[in-house]
Amino acid sequence: MSSNNEVPKFGLLTASTPAEAVSLLTQYGDQARIVSGGTDLLYTMKNGVTYKTPNYVVDISSLPLNYIKYDATDGLRIGATTPISAIATDPNIAQYYAVLSQAAATVAAPQIRNQATAAGDIIQDTWCWYLRNNYPCWQNGGNVCYGVLGDNRYYQSIFGGRLTFAVNPGDTPVAYFALNADVTVQGPNGTTNMPISQLLPGVAIVGGKVKENSLQHNEMVTEIHVPAPPANSVSSWYKVRARQSFDFALASAAAVLTMNGSTISAASLVLGGVDVAPHRATAAESYLVGQSLTTSTIQGAAAKAVEGATPLTTGTGNSFRVFLAQGAVSKALTLLQS
């Protein structure tokens, strides 16, 4: 553990194509990690998190992956290295994918949003204090989840976990889940496409390591694709945090509703910051279909959204985030109440 804030020595590898980046990852194996914006990896390295600090860094920031493309039929395509701020300010995203635009606007702080990237917000490490401070937890070479035993108020799941209970910290992944996005992953044998829920399964054991995403060490996300929004759909985002900037979600909600007049014909509702991956609130989705948005149905959906929550009772406990998750759902749906 370093008590210093400087970055340990690392070897810099640069690539001009995703295939070349993947080939470098293959060549250097576990020794190398990808850096795109760097706000997460460099921070982790300054903290000296033992099992997350690479000896080599493959810098992909100069790859031609900084783009946002919108097509009414194909939908939205966002390159992996596109800054979060670009997502937050893109007019097409604001118009057709309000939930994503709003989620991006609540990430961290303005300077971070300028540097942090689309793919990075999805695959960043958890903000669990134990990992960030290099405690020897499951994700850091150990065999215990300190979060379960210790201070689990802010960054541990209220919907259970397996080995690790640390929540996925991102905001935009919650919106991507709600929008049924899929991602393109470049591997040694070319590209594959998978739903974002497959990329973020919650807990994955990859190459013997406990992780929160399913990427092999020599795979990288190159693009996020969001299908064209259904006709007559509306969407919204609400993030509950103690401090209104520079803070992760204690609970967030992304809602996408397809309306038939004032009746909801389809609902997609995903909670963030409360589970090891963005948490689809299926019971609340079913409940909403066929209803219209009233104070009563909003409260009903909020209650349904946290059905089955199993907040931790060990350590500090974190049941208050059930309340906050309910609040986030209520706020997000209220924003859609015309």
Binding site: Y43, A109, P110, Q111, N114, Q115
Partner: peptide
């Protein structure tokens, strides 16, 4: 020196970044 306060902000091509990270 950790990207948490903004005190090191500079502009790069007119855009604000934290120079420490």
């Amino acid at each position: 020196n950790r990207g948490e306060c903004g005190g090191c902000t500079v502009l790069i091509d007119g855009v604000a970044y934290m120079s420490c990270t």
